[in-house]
């Protein structure tokens, strides 16, 4: 469905993502783990163009998307409306939720369809109520984010992303900012989504995601994939790689 080919991202002389290729198939659940600063979040943000690539290609259904070359042959991001169109197909959930604080839970979920897809408010409202029900927060529809717990905020954020009916969901450390007792509710929501067949890429420190829902686990370090495979293999092979072992020892 979406493919990153040999992508590179540099900040000055620091290479955040170093010649990485990632192919995401429809219905696949990919979990990316690795220590902080390993480039996994940067990689995730490249998928929905929140981060520009310095070199490489992004393919959508086999065709190059989102970038063109300027007169000097450098990669530049496509025109805004093209990028917006692409982004609207890809949902993203952030570590710190980034709900719109001036809108109720319901209006947060309605915002994308109404503003971007120009859906009628009635239709958007129907969809939003449906999704809030799905994440178990129908009773909080008129609540402002400031009055929700972290877990509730993250579930609203998931509903907000789903309201755009994305073909792919990106999760950037969705449980890292939560109190331990609130992790479960968000985890369950994401798992439910996985079971419904949603294509997703999850960047996380939470091994539960890797164990319970991953089709593929990728271990990243220093901007490269150092281990990649089905969960069982990665965990059994992890002991052979000193860095992976050191990281897993820390987080498990």
């Amino acid at each position: 469905m979406i493919e990153l080919v040999d992508v590179v991202k540099r900040y000055n002389d620091f290479t955040a993502v170093d010649h990485v290729s990632l192919k995401i198939d429809k219905g696949e659940k990919i979990v990316i783990i690795g220590p902080s600063g390993s480039g996994k979040t940067t990689l995730l943000r490249m998928i929905n163009f929140l981060e520009t690539i310095d070199s490489g290609r992004v393919l959508l259904e086999g065709r190059e998307a989102g970038y063109r070359r300027d007169k000097k042959g450098r990669l530049v991001m496509d025109k805004q409306d093209v990028i917006c169109e692409l982004r609207s197909e890809i949902g993203m959930v952030f570590q710190h939720f980034h709900l719109f604080p001036h809108m109720t839970a319901l209006h947060n979920v309605m915002e994308g369809p109404v503003t971007v897809k120009k859906q009628s408010r009635g239709e958007a409202r129907r969809v939003a109520l449906d999704l809030l029900g799905k994440v178990g927060l129908l009773d909080k529809k008129d609540t402002y984010p400031a009055f929700l717990s972290g877990g509730q905020k993250q579930r609203v954020a998931i509903a907000r992303a789903l309201a755009m009916k994305p073909m792919l969901m990106l999760f950037d450390e969705p449980t890292s900012a939560l109190d331990p007792e609130l992790v479960g509710e968000v985890f369950t929501t994401i798992k439910q989504l996985a079971e419904e067949g949603m294509t997703m890429v999850i960047v996380t420190h939470q091994m539960g995601f890797a164990r319970e829902m991953a089709d593929r686990v990728i271990f990243m370090d220093e901007g490269r994939f150092i281990l990649e495979g089905v969960p069982g293999d990665v965990f059994s092979h992890s002991m052979e790689n000193a860095r992976v072992k050191a990281f897993l020892d820390k987080v498990l």
Partner: peptide
């Protein structure tokens, strides 16, 4: 993060 969240929904 607010601008990023808006962009991630496809907003201009």
């Amino acid at each position: 993060g607010q601008m990023e969240a808006a962009k991630s929904l496809g907003m201009t």
